[in-house]
Nucleic acid binder design. Sequence first.
DNA 1: TAGTGGTCTAGACCACTTC
DNA 2: AAGTGGTCTAGACCACTAA
Lengths: 266, 266
Amino acid sequence: MAPKWRVLADKLAEEIRLGEQGKYPPGAQLPQIRELVEDGEGSKSTVHQAYKALEAEGLVTSSRGHGTVVRQRVPLKRLGVARYDKAKWRDGDEVAFIADRVASGRSYRRNEQTQTVSRIEAPPLVAAAHGLPDGAEVYARARVVKEGDQPTHTLTSYYRPEHVEGTRIVDPTPGPAGRGGGFKVLYDAGYEIDHMKEQIFARPASSDEVKLLQLPPGEPVVELHRTTYTASDTVVEFAIGVHAASRFAWEYDFEVPDSAKREKGQ
Amino acid sequence: MAPKWRVLADKLAEEIRLGEQGKYPPGAQLPQIRELVEDGEGSKSTVHQAYKALEAEGLVTSSRGHGTVVRQRVPLKRLGVARYDKAKWRDGDEVAFIADRVASGRSYRRNEQTQTVSRIEAPPLVAAAHGLPDGAEVYARARVVKEGDQPTHTLTSYYRPEHVEGTRIVDPTPGPAGRGGGFKVLYDAGYEIDHMKEQIFARPASSDEVKLLQLPPGEPVVELHRTTYTASDTVVEFAIGVHAASRFAWEYDFEVPDSAKREKGQ
DNA sequence: TAGTGGTCTAGACCACTTC
DNA sequence: AAGTGGTCTAGACCACTAA
């Protein structure tokens, strides 16, 4: 026998998932807690627990004074490898992430990215990615990227000092590292990026991340580890991104490998 | 002022995150709820709420009779595109996912995959991927993949009837579609797969998925949409996977695109 | 049988929003 | 001031595990 709050939550969830045809389309208000208490669905705590479950499943958001409302399904922003197109940042002056936003028809505003740069001892993961010994120092360039007032993700890039010392990439001025962004700076310094590895996984958000990214309770995050190489396989950037899961999808095209044929790498 | 349960949860979370050096290394038991009640951390419900928060953040698991225990961090299984290597399923008789498991040193057992095949009206997403009109019929081949007793993910493949009618891929016998798996069957039928598109995003698990995949409360899922093409860009398979987030990471290597040079596609 | 977490109640009170 | 969800308490009772 499922608990009472589960039964109630499932009943409401089913109606919510019907969408526009259902009793609770996106934007609709769920009954107030005290209402369902009077309907005999249980005590206030029990109904509250059901509402918390729906919130954790990403179906509703609750707020004091407003009530409990069915969440709108916003389309996921698709991130393809085209966002790294050299033509954008090498020949023009666009930063990769901004070019991406322009392409998707959203308005561009300045200061949607805050940045702090510091020289630190490399965390183990970072040292490993760069092939550095434990305790080596790196530059960390941490950004919080916002869309309007809403933070969407953090992105922290780690560089080896000998690659970036003296460039404007380590100038702690806010903003997207000047014209062209970080890849342009590396390019001008003689390190042209050539290929990348991206690793992706999801996990629950920590309470710090819930605060920083203003996540709805229960929303997971996607962590992205990006390693960027020159043509000679030198790692010039290792970056860690933490993304609000409900806002992004990643897209990759590739050929089916065939190790019997030794024509191409992969 | 943060609520009392948040303060308590953060205090415990901090000690858990210290890992082996902390008060609660992986596998350790947290104090019992009634103990913390006596220590003045609040009423039973309050302490319970803090424990639920830690569970939702993926730090602990609670069970009746056992207590509340710090979760072990299992290494993520890395999924690279090499798992689709033609040599494995075309020349040998391995199924992609099994070859992958052998490579990572885990034992292979039969019947780790249950399968149901049915002919259904294509859901909108599936119809779109195959370029079919609304209401067209497709074969759906749904599997639940387990590792030992633990389900790890579901994978549902959708095929166009004219591609698979009469093949053993639509034979509703349990097991991985016979020697070589689904791609081998398509290959034998004259549809050699050539390239793929994968789309990935994360979301909270539904209550059905929590049951089916035996997920710890609060654990998100990663949804994978895979479209498989022949060399002539015919879609021969569209598949949707739902994965327990804590078990997998995806890995992609690619070249930085350059739309100024028109040498290669991507 | 004893010990664990989980559910549920009834009610007081708090925090935030709207009027 | 009125109305919303959120927190907290005290206590009863349930469900599962282990000895």
